[in-house]
Amino acid sequence: MSESIISGPRVAVVTGASRGAGKGIALALGESGATVYVTGRSRQSSDSPYGGTIAETAALVDEAGGKGVAVAVDHSDDEAVAELFARIGHDHGRLDILVNNAAQVVNAPPPGRFWEQPLEAADLITVGLRSHYVASFHAAPLLIANGRGLIVNTGHYGAVAYHVGPAYGAQKAGSDKMAADMAKELRPHNVAAVSVWMGGLDTERVRAHFAALPAEARPTSRRESPQFTGRVIAALYASDDLMRLSGRALIGAELGAHLGITDIDGGAPLSLRYTLGGPPELHPSLY
C-alpha cells in the first residue's frame, strides 16, 4: 500500500455530512483514524425533517476512532467555502481527501414531471455540481501540497439512467465529467479525482419514505449502508491503484469488490450495471 507523503493522520473533508451518505462516509473515514471536517447547514436536529446535525456526525467520527471537526457551511456561499479551506490550510497545511457530497434537494417534491415541480429542484445543480467545483478549487492546492490526494464526487446510476428527474441526472452526469477533467489536470501532482456511484442507500430520508408506504409496497431488498462508500474511499486512497483509476466514474459495489471491502454487515453490495447501466469509457484525451 502507498501512503501519503506527509506522515500523520489523514485529513479529510466530507461536505453535506449532517445525515445520509455524507454522514456514513465521514464515519467510515473516522474508523480509518482520519481527522474529518464535517460540513453542512444543520446545527439543530429540527433543521431537517430527517434530523441529524454536523455536531452529531463529528461526535460519531470521534467514537469511531478519528477526530471529527464540525464546520457549519452553506455550500452556496463561496466565501464560506473559501474560509473552510483556509482554516484547514492554517491548521494542517495540507489535505488528503475531499468528498464532494453536498446537495440541495427539495424536500418531498410533489409527483409530476419537471415542469410541474418547484423550480427550486434546479438548485441541485448549484449545490451539488457547482459547489463540487468550488470546494475542489479551494482543496486542490492543499491536496497538491500533500504530495498525494483524492477528490471524490458521490455519484449514481442516474448519470446514465433515468432517476428522480432531469436536474438529478444532469448533476450526476456533470459530476462524472468534472472528476474526469480535474483528474487530467491533477495527474502530474499525484492527485486523483473520481466519481463513486452509490447504490440504493439505507438513509434517514429513505427510511422515512418507506415508512410512509403501505406495508405491502415497502421494498425488502438489501440496501447499502452509507458507511460502505466511506470504507471504499479510504481503501482507494491507500491503494496502489489510486492513480490508475483516477478520472473514472466507478461503481462503488464493483470498486469495493476489487479492493476487498465489505459493508458493515459483512455483505457485499451488488452492482446494478446490468439493470441501470454503467459508466462510459474515458476518451483517450483524458488519460
Rank of each mutant, 00 (worst) to 15 (best):
E3Q: 15
I6N: 15
I6L: 15
T15G: 09
T15P: 08
S18Q: 13
G20H: 07
A21H: 09
G22P: 07
G24V: 13
A26R: 01
A26H: 05
A28S: 15
G33E: 07
G33P: 03
V36E: 01
V36K: 08
Y37N: 04
V38N: 12
V38M: 09
S42K: 05
S45V: 12
S46V: 15
S48N: 09
G51D: 05
T53W: 07
A55Q: 13
E56P: 08
A59W: 10
E63Q: 14
A70Q: 08
A72C: 09
A72I: 02
V73Y: 03
V73I: 15
V73D: 08
H75W: 09
A82F: 00
E83W: 00
G89I: 09
G89N: 12
R94E: 02
D96R: 09
L98N: 11
V106P: 06
V106T: 15
P109L: 05
P109R: 05
E116C: 03
Q117Y: 01
A122K: 00
A122T: 05
L124K: 01
V127K: 02
L129V: 06
H132Y: 15
V134H: 02
L142H: 08
L142F: 09
N146P: 12
N146D: 11
R148A: 10
R148C: 11
G149D: 13
L150P: 01
N153Q: 02
T154K: 05
G155E: 08
H156F: 10
Y162G: 11
H163Q: 14
G165D: 01
G169A: 06
G169M: 01
Q171F: 01
K172F: 03
K172Q: 13
S175Y: 05
D176T: 11
M178G: 00
M182Y: 15
A183R: 01
K184T: 13
H189R: 06
A193L: 04
V196N: 13
M198S: 08
M198H: 04
L201T: 01
D202K: 09
E204C: 13
A208R: 12
A208Y: 04
E216F: 02
A217Q: 15
A217F: 12
R218M: 02
R223K: 15
E224D: 13
S225L: 10
A235W: 04
A238G: 10
D241Y: 03
D241N: 13
M243G: 06
R244F: 09
R244W: 03
G247N: 14
R248L: 14
R248D: 08
A249F: 02
G252Q: 07
E254A: 05
L255W: 05
L259V: 04
I261T: 11
I261M: 09
T262Q: 07
T262F: 00
G266P: 04
A268G: 01
P269L: 04
T275M: 15
P279D: 05
P279C: 08
P280H: 05
P280T: 06
L282Y: 12
H283L: 14
S285E: 14
